[in-house]
Simulated assay, not measured.
Amino acid sequence: MAQNLATAIGLPVTHREVPLDYVRTSADLAAMLPIDTVLTDGWADRPAPGLLTLTPGGRRRLTDVAARVDAFRELSMAGISLEEYRTTVRTLERMSHKLEMATSPSH
């Protein structure tokens, strides 16, 4: 699952390791800031300079999180058709865009 997620968002992943030189923008760096937390909490190890890998405990925890997310999605989508879901998401995106435009400094 972690490999599929990483692949889906375009991260180069080999054997569940992400090269730290992948950081190219400040947004990439901001996304990497929680690294100290995942290392300290035992989610990941640094097997070599510039690489992170999930620990066995991190893999178990990730599996648990994925199961919880799946259960939440199943419960929250019960009785809602895919078309209703898509309509809701499109409407919320339009609302969000309007609010962003109305509150942007250049507007």
Rank of each mutant, 00 (worst) to 15 (best):
M95H: 08
A66D: 12
R86P: 01
E83C: 01
T37R: 11
P47S: 06
D70P: 03
G42H: 03
M95E: 12
G58C: 04
A71M: 04
L33V: 14
K98R: 13
R60H: 09
R90Q: 14
R86Y: 05
V89L: 12
A71P: 02
L39A: 06
G58I: 01
W43I: 01
L51K: 15
T103W: 09
R68Q: 13
P56K: 04
T53R: 12
A48H: 11
A48I: 05
V89R: 09
P47I: 05
E93F: 09
D45H: 07
L99F: 08
T40P: 01
A31G: 15
E74V: 00
A66C: 08
S96L: 12
D36K: 04
I80T: 15
L33P: 01
A67N: 11
W43G: 00
T91A: 13
R90H: 10
A67G: 11
T63L: 10
G57T: 11
L82W: 03
P56I: 04
D45I: 07
G58T: 09
G50P: 04
E84H: 11
L39I: 15
T103Y: 14
T88H: 09
A67H: 13
R68H: 10
R46N: 12
M77A: 15
D45S: 12
E74C: 04
P34A: 11
A78I: 00
T87E: 07
E100V: 05
R86S: 10
S104V: 03
M32W: 13
A67T: 11
T103S: 15
H97N: 08
